[in-house]
């Protein structure tokens, strides 16, 4: 177990290294510079470029960046004067992660519930409508959903505010936008695995022993039915925690997703790098955690050798 974790962390670090290297050179290969400011004279632009050391050889900049990174220093933003990338991440991450965590919680609970309902119900109407919802959920792009929710529940009905995350009411529309897809995904997974588990021998056996229905469904079926959900949870949590550009942009949420896209189009190299590394770490950790939880739940799953 320990050996496995150490190995996975090693692979994770290697992945990060490759990620840093590729991102570093790719961002620098994009044409343009962070200092393409309107009305700035070329002479002054060159002055800024040399002040920030962007005129030095690329390999030298790369080595220096790695050195700083090793000490946990992501550098300073080129576009936001005096702001370090570390501070920037620290200020952006909470909004995105809070929204992501709530969305995941909502998705897990509602998705599981809907999945079980679909599996156990005998009413075709219920089954059909949940199925329709989940098909809708996986197929509607989130920017359409976000705009739709904003216009209907924000502008026309005026039920919820649409700007930022300052009160709990502000969370409602972004959370719904972010959760619809995961809910649909989870409910489909749960439905399939739950139906499958219902016909397993141990369930039949438990029934034959005369155990209570609720005990059977909770203890015997659900536990096994949740394994595929846990496996997909790793990437799903990582996806939710790293933030969605669309959701953050439309609901004006100061988070990682929005800043990342802005940084790319502004050529704010250090911010792009910093956020990439940060998201990379999140994704690696989430995947590792999901794999470990799977083993804890079902000891039959062997660690990969």
């Amino acid at each position: 177990m320990v050996k496995y974790i150490v190995k996975r962390i090693g692979i994770g670090l290697l992945t990060l290294f490759v990620l840093v290297t590729v991102t570093f050179f790719l961002t620098r290969m994009m044409p343009g510079s962070p200092f393409d400011i309107a009305n700035l004279t070329p002479a002054n632009q060159e002055k800024m470029i040399s002040f920030y050391g962007l005129d030095r050889p690329l390999t030298e900049q790369y080595v220096q960046y790695l050195g700083n990174l090793f000490h946990g220093d992501f550098g300073v933003s080129f576009k936001k004067a005096g702001v370090t990338v570390n501070d920037l991440i620290a200020s952006l991450a909470p909004a995105t992660m809070k929204l992501g965590a709530i969305s995941y919680g909502v998705s897990l609970i509602l998705g599981t519930a809907l999945g079980i309902w679909m599996a156990v119900t005998r009413q075709d109407l219920v089954k059909g409508s949940i199925l329709t919802f989940s098909t809708f959920g996986v197929s509607v792009p989130n920017f359409v959903l976000a705009l739709l929710l904003m216009l209907v529940f924000g502008v026309y009905l005026n039920w919820f505010p649409v700007l930022g995350l300052s009160t709990p009411r502000h969370y409602v529309l972004p959370v719904i936008t972010q959760s619809v897809y995961p809910i649909a995904q989870i409910s489909r997974l749960v439905k399939t695995s739950y139906t499958e588990a219902m016909s397993q021998d141990y369930v039949v056996m438990a029934r034959a022993k005369g155990l209570k229905g609720s005990r059977i469904s909770l203890l015997h079926i659900l536990k096994n039915a949740m394994i595929p959900v846990i496996t997909t949870s790793g990437p799903m949590i990582a996806f939710l925690l790293t933030g969605s550009f669309v959701v953050e942009n439309i609901f004006t949420i100061p988070g990682i997703g929005r800043e990342f896209v802005n940084a790319v189009s502004n050529r704010d190299y250090t911010v792009v790098m910093g956020l990439t590394v940060f998201m990379g770490i999140l994704i690696i950790v989430c995947n590792l955690a999901a794999d470990l939880v799977c083993v804890l739940v079902d000891p039959r799953i062997k660690m990969a050798e």
């Binding site: 904003m150 924000g154 005026n158 700007l163 439309i250 004006t252 100061p254």
Partner: peptide
């Protein structure tokens, strides 16, 4: 002074009275 990037978000937040 709020920073709002998205054109639709600008208009919506005005219509909801938030801005």
């Amino acid at each position: 002074v709020e920073f709002i990037d998205d054109a639709q978000a600008l208009l919506s937040s005005y219509r909801t009275g938030e801005v």
